[in-house]
Amino acid sequence: MSAFFIEGRDFELFVDAVIGARRVVGPVAKRTKFVYAELESAEELRLDFDVTILPPKKVFFPPSQDLVRFSDGVVGGCIDPVETVLLGVHFYDVKGIDMTDFLFRERNEDWNYLAQREATTIVASSIQSISPRAFWSSVGAEVEPQGHDAFLTKVNGGYLFETRTPKGEALLGYGSFREATDAEVGAAALANAAAMKQCPERLDYPSEAIAEKVRDSFGDVAMWDELAKDCFSCGSCNTVCPTCYCFDVRDAWNLDQASGTRTRYWDACLTREFATVTMAGGGTENFREHHSARFRHRFMRKAAYLNEKLGGPACTGCGRCSQACTADIADPVRVITHIMEVSS
């Protein structure tokens, strides 16, 4: 596709024009952090964000989502997508969306996710500020971000707008874009390459070697116990992860006590009851009873189990888990580096 340029002063007008036409979700400030939220005006948009608390997957897979509604013996679905522009997604989060796209589509297509995904135009954006725990420059470097429709790079007092799909091109009509010069395209490439060099943490091993070593470490119970010693089983590392997609399903009645909903909620495999089943005999059994077994399961999922399907690790290097873990034991760079260095 092609590259366009928009001056800084015209960019806000462009965003406001898109807001006038569609639902627009982008990064905004929340206290000392950033979150994705529906924009009311371009002023709220903070493309200088470092990382958001939750990844943008919440646009398609919200923390709670009604799947089925029932009333008087009638049961119906509630897939109701809204045309949306998701504006300002860093490349590592595009990779995360690529993974959840695949996972919700494989084998059984889940249109509770896919319908909103297809109704969304994703505009990726260059990294202007860097999160202190990021390691996106090194993890899964063999996997290219795919599922975006355009890419914005802040450069030369404006933005380079590279369209990737017809959905991305369709946004051109909302702003004063002109064709970009070779110099602007070159400057944007330099800016994006420079950001990659400033990534603070690095995972210095190839994905395949990591997958093999992590899988082989499964039986090293003493090591996992030590790594997980301070784990609260609080599920924060799961809940903020762009590639976690587990959920629980619960029913509830509305106030009328006759109608109600079947709703899915994000779940977390680090929490204690996640793998607990009520056995046919009546008792319960927890297949990952000890917190270190759950801690290990997360690393198996991120570094080994899904690699074959996804073509790389189920990790984007966003560093959200490292930041969210109050005990600071969740950082994949530290845990995986430890396994690579010491595990036999």
């Binding site: 979150v35 608390i53 089983s233 609080c234 599920g235 924060s236 809940t239 909620y265 994000w266 204690r272």
Partner: peptide, 13 residues
């Protein structure tokens, strides 16, 4: 599960 799950779901700092 603990309160962290609910804080994260509603994106509390």
């Amino acid at each position: 599960y603990p309160v962290c799950v609910e804080c994260k779901r509603r994106e509390t700092v």
